[in-house]
Amino acid sequence: MLTTASHKKVLHQLNRSFLNEVGGLSRFAGRFFNQAFRPRYEIAEFIRQCFVIGYKSLPLIGLTSFILGLVLTMQLRPSMVSYGVESQLPAIVGIAVIREIGPVITALIFAGKIGSSIGAELGSMRVTEQIDAMEVSGTNPFKYLVVTRVLAATLMLPILVLLGDAISLFGSWIGINIRGATSFHLYWTQVFDNLAFTDVLPAFFKSFFFGFAVGIIGCFKGYNSSKGTEGVGISANSAVVVSSIVIFILDLLAVQVTDALGLN
């Protein structure tokens, strides 16, 4: 008896916390698609959000990407040397960064920075009734706040990934030149020589999905924030946690899809 009761309780818990979350998020995403592509278009606010979400994230993404490229190269070097394929370092780092590490690490940092800020911002707007105030002012707050942010995150993350890749590879070039000497030109030639469209394009496309995930989850958490300042903190925090997990899941799916399409 007890077991079935606790069993039920667990199920109930699961239903509340997980399934409820998934259902709510799906409906939220549905609402996004329903509203995003019909007027009115909040273009000015969208551009402002692009600036805030994209441009303002560049210093952080740039720094981490640079260090990532540098460290990756320095860490790979000893084993590459011991296999006598040191000259393949640019090729290996290039493929690793472009295909996987660049998009995923950039997306995770993006989730940390943007997911939390969207969650907190919309959360506090919800809690202080600013969202209601917008609605009474004849503004559709979903369009004004959610659609603009989700679109900006979806479109800006790929740009950040591209720039992050470039900076990572530059960092890697520096890393190579700490111990050896490879000219800038030769380095890039080696990187490009070993890349294929199938390395670049799937990575590029999946970063749109990462950006969308960060945007929609941040907005979902913030927009549906519960009352009180605690609610804001929870929104911000769970926005980061959930979007990070979703990024990994999407990454896994992306591998499967590119595999299935024969693009690997």
Binding site: E121, T128, E129, A133, M134
Partner: peptide, 9 residues
């Protein structure tokens, strides 16, 4: 609004 709901940004 009870809490003013000014847009603080």
């Amino acid at each position: 609004f009870q809490g003013n709901a000014l847009y603080d940004s």
